[in-house]
Design a protein around this nucleic acid. Structure first.
Lengths: 198, 198
DNA sequence: TCGTAAGCGGAGCAACGTTCCGCTTGTTTT
DNA sequence: AAAACAAGCGGAACGTTGCTCCGCTTACGA
């Protein structure tokens, strides 16, 4: 292909076309495999599905978390952007916080659902959580602070703690009708709520 | 009587003395190794520490969970027995439930502390939780039902769900001063509490 | 067209879980 | 006491995994 038409690519040091292509293939294959085998699927399986060698996968995504993060980046971004919007649209900051956490739970449940196929396990999981937390933490802080300021929520709990708590509650959430993380998250939020007198 | 004079052992089909000895050595070694390397320590390491072969460890404890359960059985038992006692000693069933869950959290934090050394999480973990849950569930049900009956707790949450929730909240609880599972558990319980009017 | 190096593939290594079977060693029987 | 039995033992061996490493391929600028 005679090509120097870099098209819309960013002003990077011109990556090779096949490298970009492989990265795409990898992401697509990973997303597919994750659904079937969970995020702990063997690296080989993903590489095979993408039709590339194992060296390639490790070059593009040095750790498993890197790959998973890349696959889920869109959803995380959407959730992060929903925060300020909900705060603006809703009268009660606590209500906004509640709705936003619902979104967050939706995302977590989906993600965990993918991971829990065979074993409800979770090896590279927490590292993963940690990353998403870093991205979403500022949003959570904004919402929580607003709710505290409005006197709707008792202080004493940090946004970080709340996020990790919600994240943990969503672990192992599928395949067991007796365990509905949403109910527990609701309890948590109710406990967080400041009721009239202090 | 076929060797029933063997100490206080139950009426088993007379196990061989060396087998019993090995089981003890295994338990001791496992407890020791768990502290250093977490519950995911290589089987080989435990076998080596105990001075036995790998076949032995698999014969006594077919799955990793079996081994871990054996190691922690005492603590679980103590926790289970504390339930009815607290209920009898305390006036408010909700207060008894709260105290008992504190005990449960103590246990979980300890256990997780052992497991979180290298990777904050790991594989055979949930199965483990499940076992402990099975043992402690009846106790939790007793406490929760009493609290509901006394009108101190809103119904709608099952004991199973509560236990799993608390268990999940305790994951990854050490090494991070920003995350204190007790605070979140407190929130959860507050949310569970029925406040005056229904 | 041609040279260069970025990129690729997968063989190879180490570590792990798990199985299997011949030998050891308590225990029972005579 | 000695012999016979089988419960129990050890660890070699196998399959699977994560990860590295290096010779070959090929895209791309000149």
């Amino acid at each position: 292909m005679p090509a120097s038409d870099k098209a819309g690519k960013a002003a990077g040091p011109s990556k090779r076309a096949d490298a970009v292509r492989n990265q795409q293939k990898l992401l697509a294959a990973a997303a597919e495999v994750f659904v079937v085998s969970g995020v702990d699927a063997p690296i080989r399986e993903i590489a095979a599905k993408a039709g590339v060698g194992m060296g390639t996968i490790y070059r593009h995504f040095p750790t498993r978390a890197d790959l998973v993060v890349a696959v889920f980046r869109h959803q995380v971004e959407a959730c992060a952007e929903a925060g300020p919007r909900l705060l603006a649209e809703t009268d009660s900051p606590f209500e906004a916080l509640w709705q936003w956490i619902d979104l967050f739970v939706d995302f977590l449940v989906t993600k965990h659902g993918l991971a829990n196929a065979p074993q409800p396990d979770s090896s590279g999981f927490v590292a993963l959580h940690t990353y998403f937390l870093d991205r979403l933490l500022p949003v959570a802080e904004q919402l929580l602070d607003a709710a505290i300021e409005a006197g709707e929520v008792r202080s004493g709990v940090q946004a970080y703690e709340l996020m990790r708590g919600v994240g943990n509650l969503c672990i192992g959430s599928d395949g067991d009708p007796r365990y509905d993380p949403r109910r527990l998250v609701a309890l948590l939020l109710r406990g967080l709520q400041e009721l009239g007198a202090s």
